Amino acid sequence: MAPSRRAPTADGTARRRVTATDVAREAGVSQATVSYVLNNTPGQTIPAHTRERVQDAVARLGYAPHGAARALRLGRSDVVLFLLPDWPIGPAVVTLVEGLTERLQAQGLSLLVRRAAEGVALSGLWRSVSPAAVVSLDALDGAELEAMEGAGIPVVSALVRPRASAPGVLTGSHTLIGATQLQHLAATGHRHIGYGLPDDPRVAVFRDLRLDGVRTAAFELGLAEPSVRVVPMSVGGAADVVAAWRAESPAVTAVCAYNDDMAFALLAGMRTLGLTAPTDLAVIGVDDTPLAPFAHPPLTTVRQDADAIMDFLTAAVLRRLAGGTPPRPPRSEAITLVVRESA
């Protein structure tokens, strides 16, 4: 077997990129064999000991396939461009990005996450990246969408703000989340219920959908319109809102918090007032974040089936790349009420 080599440049100060030819020479096989092994080419019977020699050579030389060359060979890159709206990067978004990354990596694809800034054209981004596909969680400009599809780049959507021709995959679930919160509080005897609004305008679309679900459920159950207040994300600010709810006539006895983080703030504000949940004020959150069971008291919350969304997006990307149509979106009812001690 030939000795390991990295082929220095003429001046001896730098090393050129290791190629598949170098791997073939190192392993004592043809370049075609290297290609078959690295790409798991179907229909090729490569002996196990030959595969091992190629993989050992790859490890010794530190070979990595050249992205541009691979893109030319396949007719596309292995990058899936994930357009993330200008949302706060909380636990739910992190879970979505991590899960989608893992699922696509298992299929030989890489996820590139970029924020889609409002009013900024995406053409420069997708033209420079040349992605295999684009995943968007929000509605795209019609001309931009047409340009990408016309360039052979499939676009997969799980829209929060639906277009008339494309109902939002995530829309119904967030409305149902709000309804589930209120229905649980009503089922436990509460009749005067508050809703905690976030003060971050970036989450307005989720806020509006969830609040709509709360209001609709209250109307259907014959309850009064929920008392809606903005809850600052500070202990003192949350305490002031709790005091205001309790001062109403009749007093609010339970609150639907926009998410678990807000619920934590409300519970902390209640403690500064000497109040406890659910005796003085019941609180229910959204997201079932990892800290929810450790709240004081443990937080009752609503969990969305993130796996269903990630599975849908992955399957949709793979089907579009194969020339097919996306699968049916996940059912909006894929949410779970997690009952603990706060409500």
Results as ranks from 00 to 15, higher is better:
Val230Tyr: 01
Asp288Gln: 07
Thr300Pro: 00
Glu248Phe: 05
Thr301Tyr: 11
Ala257Asn: 06
Ala292Phe: 00
Arg320Trp: 02
Val235Leu: 09
His296Ala: 14
Thr325Asp: 15
Trp245Glu: 10
Thr289Gln: 14
Ala251Cys: 05
Leu273Ile: 11
Ala322Asn: 14
Ala306Glu: 10
Val317Thr: 06
Cys256Trp: 06
Ala243Met: 05
Val252Ser: 07
Asp260Glu: 01
Phe312Trp: 14
Met262Pro: 04
Thr272Asp: 07
Val317Lys: 06
Asp287His: 05
Ala254His: 07
Ala239Val: 05
Ala315Lys: 09
Val230Glu: 15
Gly274Lys: 01
Ile284His: 02
Thr314Glu: 15
Ala295Phe: 04
Tyr258Ile: 12
Leu281Pro: 03
Val252Phe: 04
Gly236Trp: 00
Thr272Lys: 00
Ser332Pro: 09
Val255Ile: 14
Met270Gly: 12
Asp240Tyr: 00
Thr253Arg: 14
Ala247Lys: 13
Gly274Asp: 06
Pro298Asp: 01
Ala247Leu: 05
Pro297Ile: 01
Met310Arg: 11
Ala268Gln: 15
Pro232Ala: 10
Pro290Tyr: 04
Arg328Ile: 02
Ser234Glu: 11
Leu281Ser: 03
Thr336Ala: 14
Arg331Glu: 14
Phe294Asn: 10
Ile335Asn: 10
Gly323Ser: 07
Thr279Trp: 08
Thr336Gly: 11
Met270Ser: 11
Pro293Ala: 09
Gly285Asn: 13
Ala265His: 13
Ala315Arg: 09
Arg271Ala: 13
Arg303Asp: 05
Leu313Ala: 08
Ala251Thr: 14
Asp307Cys: 03
Ser249His: 15
Asp280Ser: 11
Val317Cys: 05
Val231Thr: 12
Gly237Ala: 03
Phe264Gly: 06
Leu313Thr: 10
Ile335Arg: 13
Thr301Cys: 04
Met262His: 09
Leu313Met: 07
Ile284Asp: 01
Asp240Lys: 08
Met262Ile: 13
Ala265Glu: 06
Ile309Lys: 09
Ile309Glu: 08
Leu273Phe: 10
Cys256Ile: 08
Val317Glu: 02
Pro327Glu: 06
Ile284Val: 08
Val302Ser: 03
Ala306Tyr: 02
Ala268Pro: 00
Arg320Phe: 00
Asp305His: 01
Ala334Thr: 05
Gly323Arg: 13
Glu333Phe: 03
Ala277Met: 07
Leu337Ile: 11
Ala282Thr: 07
Gly324Lys: 02
Asp288Phe: 10
